[in-house]
Amino acid sequence: MRGPGIAAAAALAAVLALAGCGASDDTGGDAKRDLSAAAPERAGQGAGADEGYASSGERGGKGAPATSAPKKPALPQQHMIRTAELSVEVDNAAKALARARTATENAGGHVASETTERVDGTHVTSRVVLRVPQAGYDSVLKELAGTGTLLSRKADAKDVTEQVVDVQSRIATQRASVERVRKLMDQATQLSDVVTLESELSRRQADLESLLAQQASLKDRTTLATITLELSERGKTAPETEDEGPGFLDALSGGWNALVTVVTWIGIALAALAPWAAALLVLFAVWRWLVRPRLTRRRTAADSAPAPAPAAVPAPAHAPDLTHKED
């Protein structure tokens, strides 16, 4: 029993000894690397370093050099979506639009859309959407506002840094998920497993493509700012003419217009009375050729019939004579 125990103890001691040697070698190597890294800095400082040491010795009573401040962690890149709307009144919309195009192209941007129309046949209005890089956003805005009289201006800036970082993280996670599913498909041997993994892979790839589309949209909106410019020309009024009195031709034209108006209204009135006149004409025809002849025949027949003889009235038997009556 002692033989195996002694052998095990000897092996453990050997392992510990080797580990101690390795640790000491690593410590020495680290110390050497630190010294080699510090040597060029001391060599480069020269007399200034000596003065620093002296001044530090005088302040603290010790000759120990001051330690350098730790570096600050780098801040994440800020992502902003900038939009602006301008309304400018100009003398010539075509020239102002050409100037806006030139300013946009010089800044490295492009025209996204444009709409130009003529209003009331007197002046032109234009609406143009410009996409310019973030670096030239302010300069282009200043150039566009100077093309004429600024009527209104609205600018907006939205910080989407957190959204951009979140989408990037989700894309990395989704890609790793897709890769895991693909490795499982390579290892699958049963048909049911392959079908299930293919369905899961399709779903995860669709999610990955949606995230990539969001990332592309965010990149486009944070890289290029959007400026909507509305250009309107000043209304051109017709020159005023002196008010002159009416002449012979004006009176003749006015009378003719009045005559035409009266005739027109008379025609409208006759057209409105025409149905009534037609109905009255029909009633008169019925009376004239149907009702009236019948009434005439009835009257003629009544007149031609013999009248009955009058009855005789008997005279009184004894009529008193009142002519010679005396009082």
Rank of each mutant, 00 (worst) to 15 (best):
R153G: 10
L201C: 07
R153A: 13
G136F: 00
G146Y: 03
S139E: 10
R153D: 07
E198L: 09
A188N: 02
V140F: 01
V178E: 02
T149S: 12
A103C: 02
G108A: 00
R127F: 07
D159F: 04
A112N: 05
Q134I: 06
S177H: 08
E198H: 11
T149Q: 12
V195G: 10
S199N: 14
L184T: 04
V194L: 15
R131W: 00
K183P: 00
S113D: 08
K154R: 15
L184N: 07
M185L: 13
L151E: 13
V167P: 01
L150Y: 03
V132A: 01
R203V: 11
D159K: 04
K183M: 08
V195P: 01
V194Q: 14
S113I: 06
R180A: 04
A155I: 09
E198M: 11
H123C: 06
E198D: 11
A103N: 00
V129I: 09
S126K: 06
M185K: 04
S192I: 09
V195M: 14
R170L: 06
G136L: 03
S202E: 13
T189P: 05
K154Q: 15
P133L: 05
K158P: 04
Q190Y: 08
V129Q: 12
R175L: 09
V194M: 13
A112E: 09
Q134T: 10
R101S: 07
S199W: 12
A176R: 02
V181S: 05
V195R: 15
H110R: 14
V124S: 06
R118G: 11
K154A: 15
D166K: 15
L197V: 02
A112V: 07
V124A: 08
V194R: 15
L191I: 09
T149W: 10
G109H: 00
T125N: 09
A188Q: 03
D156G: 10
V140E: 00
G109M: 00
G148N: 02
Q187S: 08
G121Q: 02
R180D: 03
A172T: 11
K142T: 12
A188H: 00
T173W: 07
Q168M: 14
D166R: 15
R204M: 07
V178N: 06
V111L: 04
V195A: 14
R204H: 05
L197F: 00
V119P: 01
V164W: 05
L144W: 02
E105A: 15
V129E: 11
S152C: 04
A145G: 13
E114M: 08
G148T: 00
R182S: 12
G148H: 02
A98T: 05
Q187T: 04
I171D: 03
K142M: 11
I171Q: 07
E198F: 08
Q190N: 14
G136C: 03
E200R: 10
G121L: 04
K183W: 04
L141H: 01
A103R: 00
T125C: 07
V167Y: 03
Q187E: 07
E117F: 08
E200C: 08
